[in-house]
């Protein structure tokens, strides 16, 4: 089977989510990579080093700079004449573009796969990960999004693929990019961090969140996450949210501080290797998944913990 992988990038560097997607694709067959962007030659050169890549297709045009689905989907559809499957990481970009490609190809997308069971069968989570479905498709071409935490990352170095230039129809004139607010963050990225400290509604306000959660995260070299309630209340920006409808994470250690453990939150973190929960309610559902629990007031416990580490 010939597969094409969507390379996630910001026109500067290849994002980690790409690497797990390459691993998933390699279970289906040969892997080529697509870099669609603007001024993205450097990204294509970096992508060519990913272990297992056959070749890199580079579509470099202003219309592809922000990966607008209206513009990149037709490009991929054309390229799919030469491929049996296209795989995207389950990032917000992948989730935006992939279904548009699928519908244009008249196939169902297989969302968020956890494993490849055969050339046409996969497992995927449903009901916020409360059940795992094994599904089989009868579509001739496959359009797949890949859950990053479910596959090993392919090595980012060692490959020596060739870069080939391709072009598409460019700007379809339906949409335009206005701007973005992407926070510069010195911390590790949530989806690739080894340790995560997450805070919930119990933090009470933004100041507490920063003064309680961040020093602990600093001590542990951790990324910072949050529950939906903490994000909704404005303690931290939306991209901190972990859960069914936020980010899916699986670090070595996940520390949940003042988070009750609603199923939608657990959906995003229950594959973490070790879960530590700090909550004043000894019956909080988070303790049912926690490896180590400490019952008590976070405003006492967390500063003391930070101090003693």
């Amino acid at each position: 089977m010939k597969t094409l992988v969507w390379v996630e990038h910001d026109n500067k560097s290849v994002k980690d989510a790409t690497l797990a997607t390459v691993t998933a694709a390699s279970k289906l067959g040969d892997v080529d990579l697509l870099v669609a962007g603007s001024g993205a030659q450097g990204v294509a050169d970096a992508a060519a080093k990913i272990a297992g890549a056959g070749k890199v297709l580079l579509a470099d045009e202003a219309a592809y700079e922000h990966a607008l689905a209206e513009n990149v989907a037709p490009l991929i559809v054309t390229l799919m004449q030469g491929y049996d499957a296209v795989l995207f990481p389950s990032t917000t970009t992948g989730k935006n573009v992939a279904p548009r490609v699928a519908a244009l190809l008249d196939v169902m997308q297989i969302s968020d796969i956890l494993s490849v069971e055969g050339p046409d069968s996969f497992t995927r989570p449903i009901y916020a990960g409360n059940a795992i479905a094994t599904v089989q498709t009868s579509d001739k071409k496959l359009v797949i999004t890949v859950r990053g935490t479910a596959f090993e990352k392919a090595a980012g170095e060692g490959g020596s693929a060739t870069v080939e230039t391709v072009s598409g129809e460019g700007d379809k004139g339906l949409s335009s990019f206005v701007g973005s607010e992407i926070a510069e963050n010195a911390r590790p990225e949530l989806t690739s961090a080894k340790v995560i400290v997450s805070g919930g509604r119990a933090l009470g306000n933004s100041e507490n969140f920063h003064s309680i959660i961040e020093p602990l995260a600093d001590k542990l070299g951790a990324a910072v996450g949050a529950s939906r309630a903490a994000v909704d209340a404005g303690y931290v920006p939306n991209d901190y949210q972990v859960g069914q409808t936020g980010k899916i994470v699986a670090p070595e250690v996940y520390v949940a501080v003042g988070i009750s453990g609603a199923i939608q939150h657990l959906a995003g973190m229950k594959d973490s290797k070790t879960i530590i929960a700090i909550n004043k309610d000894e019956d909080a559902p988070i303790f049912q998944v926690a490896d180590i629990g400490l019952v008590g007031d976070l405003f006492k416990i967390v500063p003391e913990l930070t101090e003693k580490l």
């Binding site: 339906l174 949409s175 206005v178 973005s180 991209d239």
Partner: peptide
């Protein structure tokens, strides 16, 4: 205005 992985992004649609 869209919620994306790194924060927020705004697009203008016809």
């Amino acid at each position: 205005t869209r919620e994306v992985d790194g924060g927020l992004e705004t697009v203008d649609l016809k």
